[in-house]
Design a protein around this nucleic acid. Structure first.
Lengths: 210, 210
DNA sequence: TAAATTTTTGAATCAAGGTTCAATTTTCCT
DNA sequence: AGGAAAATTGAACCTTGATTCAAAAATTTA
């Protein structure tokens, strides 16, 4: 007989022993990564719950023990990814010049994109999320974009960058980075390390004052 | 009674009078553009045939008079888009320097992306296509990428560009451009004209030799 | 204007896949 | 070991949306 209170579902973080909770958390992350891979490869709607479950050698109904529904998995992917990139901007601030800051952000974002695939969630369709989650994700995404625009604005003010439109410059940068999710393969010939360096070079140089 | 031979479906280009054929062709294009808009906004799988039909003030079953199935509509979108960008490379060749050629290609590709939305099909998920169509689209896409890489290679040889990896440079450029499909709105504040100019500046300058 | 042809429709079919749930297996803890 | 909690399963359910088809509406053509 279940000890859970009426109305409490299995995927709700019922408090258990530390060990059990840790194991559960680990499993959640496994699911998230399997989902991330599938979403990235085939898109959210084309991904069947079975596709995710199979990667873990389990039936799709098992997933309902960890997430209330498919949308929740997508949302969790987004959360993870957004958290990651938020950290990037933090770290970038400590660099001396604006060019360095931007280059650092680009390199790190690319790394998050290739290393763990968590960054690819940024490239996912937001339209599949519930209105509430959609608003949340868009807000976080906006914060990230604003932070990057600020770096560019400061660079322009400092005479380091040309007088570009910060909004468009950031769109170009994020486009290049997010597109990585569409073609990058860990088994391919492109080394993630050099990918980040190349992109940073290409995209920052394009903004530098002559 | 239908005059069509047995096995011939309605969507097959049955030969009729010139006027009828022209009208039919016009309708096909209307459908394609409605589909393009929907696919761009919500993605292929999230788009219902009803979504496309509604834009034309018609029931979804009417679409089957023009296309055998949903996948065929997606495929036609791809065809149209690829044809468009193929023309771009053609025209670019006539420019003097490699920098000009690349800038022209970027501006034009952005224009195709915003003007008609036909360019956005390049950004669509290829995975939804049948294997045969998928191969066809990938091949055409590859040709386009190769053409761009060639411009960059020549630019490097001529000392106009830095010694970048042409493959990565093209990925960055196409990423920036394809990403436009995700955020651009004709009613937004970004002027398509200036968008193309900005992107061309940003992305070409990033490659120029110091 | 009337027959022929094209286009559109509405009802019906059909399959896929997300979700629920009670039962079973596995793991945890004393 | 043995009972409790957690994890997984298989069967069933149910909605959604693509597709089929014969009939109706609109358009073309002579």
């Amino acid at each position: 007989m279940a000890a859970a209170a009426p109305g409490t579902r299995a995927h709700t973080p019922t408090r258990g022993s530390a060990h059990v909770r840790a194991k559960r958390q680990r499993r959640r992350v496994e699911i998230l990564h399997a989902a991330l891979r599938a979403f990235r490869d085939k898109g959210y709607h084309a991904t069947k719950l079975d596709d995710i479950a199979q990667q873990l050698g389990v039936r799709k109904t098992a997933l309902y023990h960890y997430f209330p529904d498919k949308e929740a998995i997508l949302h969790a992917c987004h959360r993870e990814g957004l958290e990651e990139v938020a950290g990037i901007v933090e770290a970038a601030r400590r660099r001396p010049s604006c060019g360095d800051q931007l280059a650092h952000a680009i390199r790190e974002h690319v790394r998050v994109m290739t290393d763990t695939l968590e960054g690819s969630s940024l490239a996912f369709e937001v339209s599949a999320l519930s209105p509430r989650h959609q608003a949340e994700v868009i807000a976080a995404r906006d914060r990230y974009e604003q932070a990057l625009r600020d770096i560019i604005r400061r660079g322009i003010a400092a005479g380091e960058f040309r007088a570009v439109d910060p909004k468009l410059a950031v769109f170009a940068i994020l486009g290049a980075i997010n597109w990585v999710a569409r073609w990058y393969s860990p088994t391919g010939s492109v080394h993630p390390q050099s990918l980040g360096a190349h992109f940073a070079d290409h995209l920052v140089r394009g903004l530098l004052a002559p």
